[in-house]
Computed example of a mutant assay.
Amino acid sequence: MSELVRIAPGALTIGRPLPWDVYDADGNVLLCQGFVIQTDSQLDQLFERGLFKPRVIEVPQEDDEASGDEAECNPFARYPDYLQALEKALAAIAAGEPDARKHLQDLAHALEQACIKAPDSSLALIHLYSVGPTIHEQIIFYAILCQLIARQFGLDEQRIPILTEAALSANLALVPVADKLNAFNKVLSTEQRSVIRKHPQRSIRALKAVGIDNDLLFTIIAQHHEQGDGSGYPDGLSGADIRPEAEILALAERYVAMITKRAYRKRMNVTAARKLIANLADGNFRPALPKALLQILGEYPPGTLVRLENNEVCVITGRPVRARGPFVQVVFDSSGNSCDTRQERDTSVPEFNIQALEEPDIMPSMSFSRIWGFPD
C-alpha cells in the first residue's frame, strides 16, 4: 500500500495508547488504535516493521452537519486526521503559504463538530492520551477544551471559532522546541525562558506573514499568558483588561499541563487537578471559568479509569445524566481478566458505585471505538 509511511522514531511511547492503527508492509493491521506498548522490544519491532496511513482532514459539508449525530462523528477514528491536519496547517503558516488560514479554519471546524456531536468522546481523547503527549497532541487538547469551556461559560458562538483557531496557533513558535523542553529535567536557561516568553508575539508575526488579519485572534494569542493578578506576560495585564477568550485558552493549557507527565515532575490525577482548578478563581481567572471547566469534567471525566464496588476496573465513557451515571464500560472484570465485549455499568447502582480512581503506570489496551459504541 503506497499510502503507508514508516513510523518515525519518537512517535510512539511505552505506556500510552497507539494514536492510529499500525500496518505491516502488505497493508494488514498489526495493532489497532488504543493498543498500549508495554516493552522496549515491542517498541523496537514497531519502528522496524510498523507503518501507518496518514490521512487528510475532510471538512463536513453543511448538509452532512445538519443530519449528523454522535455515531457519525468518531473522534477516536479521526484523531490521526486531526494530528495530520494540525501539522499541515502549522507547516503552511511557517512556510508562508497563502492558504494557511484555510487549513487552520478547516481543522477548527472539524473539532467544533466533534465537540458538539460527541462531547464525551472528545473529552475522553484528552485523558486517554495524557500520559506523554507530543506538542501537537497537546494543541489538539487545548482546542477541544476551549470549545467545551466556551460553551459552558456562555461565550458568544460567533467568537468560538476564532478562539479555537487561537488555541491551534498560539504555540506555533514553540512547536520546534516544545517536546525537548518537556523532556528537559533541569532548570531552564535564560535563553529557553526567553523563547517561552516571546512565543505569543512570534506566533502572531507568523500569522500576519501569511496574510491573516484578525484582531480578536491576535489579542487572544497575545494575552493567553497574562494573569488576572497582573503577574503574567508580556504586558502584565490584569482583571477585565484580559479577554475571556484568552483566559479560556490559558485555563485549557493549565489543565492539560496538570494531567500531563513531564521529565521534571509526575502528572496529577484528576482529583488533584480539580482541587487546583477550584482555587484558580481566586485572582487568576474570572470565577465563572474554572467553575465551567469543573462542570465539564465532572468528578470523573470521560477517559479516566475507576474501580467499582464489585472490583471491576472500568473506563468512564459518559458523564452523569440526571440521576444516573457517570456511565462506564468494563475494561477488567472482578477477577482481573480483560473484557473483550461491551459491558456498560450505571455507577448510580450500588453494586457499581465508584470505589476509587485507578492510576496504572501503564494504560491498559482498549478498543476506543468499540468501547464508546461507534460503528466499525
Rank of each mutant, 00 (worst) to 15 (best):
M1G: 04
E3Y: 04
R6K: 15
A8G: 04
T13E: 14
L18N: 08
L18Q: 06
G27T: 08
N28V: 11
L31E: 05
Q33P: 00
G34P: 12
G34Y: 11
I37A: 03
I37C: 02
F47Y: 15
F47S: 05
R49Y: 01
I57E: 08
V59D: 08
E62Y: 10
D63N: 12
F76D: 07
D81R: 06
Y82H: 11
A94Q: 10
H103G: 09
G132F: 02
Q138T: 07
I144V: 01
C146F: 03
Q147F: 05
G154I: 03
I162D: 06
P176C: 02
D179S: 08
F184Q: 15
V195H: 10
S203K: 06
I204N: 08
A222Y: 14
Q223D: 05
Q227F: 10
L237Q: 11
R243I: 13
L249F: 07
A250Q: 06
R254N: 04
V256G: 08
M258H: 03
I259N: 10
A263S: 15
A263W: 13
R267P: 05
N269C: 01
K275A: 15
A281M: 06
R324L: 07
V328Y: 05
D340C: 02
D346L: 09
V349D: 13
I354G: 03
L357H: 10
M363Q: 11
S365N: 01
F374C: 05
D376M: 14
